[in-house]
Design a protein around this nucleic acid. Sequence first.
DNA 1: TTGTATGCGTTATCAA
DNA 2: TTGATAACGCATACAA
Lengths: 352, 352
Amino acid sequence: MSELQSRNVPVTIARLARHLGLSAGTVSRALNNYPDIAEKTRKRVQKAALELGYRPSSSARRLARGIIETVGFVLPTTRNQHSDPFLAEILNGLASELSLHDWDLLVASVPKGQNEIDVINRLAGSGKVSGFVIARTRREDDRVNYLRKSGLPFVAQGRTDTPDDYSWLDIDNEQAFMDAVSYLRDLGHAKIAFLGGDPTLNFAWQRRNGYLRAMADQNGHIGVGYLIDGVTDELSAFHATRRLLTITEQDRPTAILCVTDAVAIGAMQAITHAGLTVSRDISIMGFDGLPIGEAVQPALTTLHQDSYEIGREVGRMILDLCTNSPSAPTQTLWQAKLTPRASVNRPGGNPA
Amino acid sequence: MSELQSRNVPVTIARLARHLGLSAGTVSRALNNYPDIAEKTRKRVQKAALELGYRPSSSARRLARGIIETVGFVLPTTRNQHSDPFLAEILNGLASELSLHDWDLLVASVPKGQNEIDVINRLAGSGKVSGFVIARTRREDDRVNYLRKSGLPFVAQGRTDTPDDYSWLDIDNEQAFMDAVSYLRDLGHAKIAFLGGDPTLNFAWQRRNGYLRAMADQNGHIGVGYLIDGVTDELSAFHATRRLLTITEQDRPTAILCVTDAVAIGAMQAITHAGLTVSRDISIMGFDGLPIGEAVQPALTTLHQDSYEIGREVGRMILDLCTNSPSAPTQTLWQAKLTPRASVNRPGGNPA
DNA sequence: TTGTATGCGTTATCAA
DNA sequence: TTGATAACGCATACAA
């Protein structure tokens, strides 16, 4: 029997069984730690499995047990993924958590001519995944609506406008931006502008709401032209900020709250380019906690979120959903962490 | 027979067959367009499949055909993924290309306590993937060495030091940085510094070599302290540049070539912070083509690479490798595209 | 405590 | 042109 180490012949349970003089059923149960197997046999089987390099075939196991143990992640359809520096971190956290439980992460993109629903459908229909994680949630989100109806387990990273009946993990963007406004007002800022993002993306909408609500609550005055939507990256931020700077010095904002760090960087560039000084003339505040924020001059005051941990927690949630199918959805709200640095100062530039 | 639309009962080939009064084998062959099926039958089967919402079970199909049709991607083990703005784009391109051929992309991360080899082993051993794509290739790379030995199909995005006997797609980093040096020298720069990255990552090493080789070829003089390694992000770039600026004005570089755009941004910050003006006093050049480069002031001269297209091409390569198992490896070298903007000028600041 | 038999859903081989 | 039948590798109910 020289079949032991013969190359390229995958070692299956049947081979193991023959090699050990046992039946396939016994070997299978020994490997899966069934209680009705003699301790001695179990040891012997597991030792042989290790030595011969036995690896269970996931297709066969899935077919037999009717399980999938794979989570699907459909990449958001934004052409320029550079604008989402979190995806890689979230994927990393998600994959890490899943792998702890021997689950897999299947990443799919949306080919031209198809939409996200088609892709979800295909993955779920052919039994490739048992649940989904979605990111970049929009206020009105086809994916969420579809998944909700379909009954498939899923976790959204970010809520929609109607978030009651499904599981999600979100940052409390509204609270974060209310905190930001309070922080600025406590320092003496009365004229606070806001550079908002794509208002169909809920995170941007929530941040916008936080700004508006805090300004209203605190009797703040939102000057003409203080609120600019659709600022999604450094370049559009640069141009939006230039528009802000055309306001007469009397009415010009003393602080600009930015929907993301990327937008904040663009705003800083515009201010410097106009011959003004960030922090002394205008304070800038962002959101994300990107590493670049520590390197710009002055360092960027921001609100920090840990994408890797978000990914891990989302992983825990989808695992729970897929394995325990709980009746009530899990909804988790995390607080962002205010990180004061030098780009925010008292109006007029007196150190805080 | 009211079994047709009954919910939650997955429609299998067997159900289809019963519903049509055919045998399972015939249905299977009809669905897979075997030539020995009557045209009329084929139509009838495919119509019914569509109506009843038949989706082949991928586990079963894989088990029966002994195929996998899945590519594995092991996320590079860098703690801070923000520092790699390409991953998401490469994944997107890769997944797009794979999905065109109904292949899947399995993304795995490396849990603490394991190494990349363990993960590769596990994925390949249990028949979860039929090949690998790896990124962030190091000059000496365990993954490449292991995969090479194992005989598993794989494509590396980026070469190792010994790139002869496997398939890869790489940017011609050395040529790119030689071009960059030529570009700067043609403008009149003689004193050119280089901020290099992690020299164990081959892309950084190649760029470093390009700089050194071009400087040597063109009889350039590399001043003391002109070459700084280990600059990996904006913050370390900021500090490295401050060191450059301590050089006496006589010997100070008139241009700084940066291993990445992120590093270039940090360098620009340091220069501005020191009261100097980028482009007029010191020219800055990066590599990547990040969107932020268009927004900084002055806009960043850079070398551009299209990560999405890199991902797609790598996808084509791994598909070819897995399906045709060609004898010779495919090795592809792409040129980066020089993108002149305002951050580079003649020394002394006279417009080019 | 172990062996036998059957099934998961699909494909493939062989008859009819 | 179609229908049985037997795999693929594993898990499990039941018999021994």
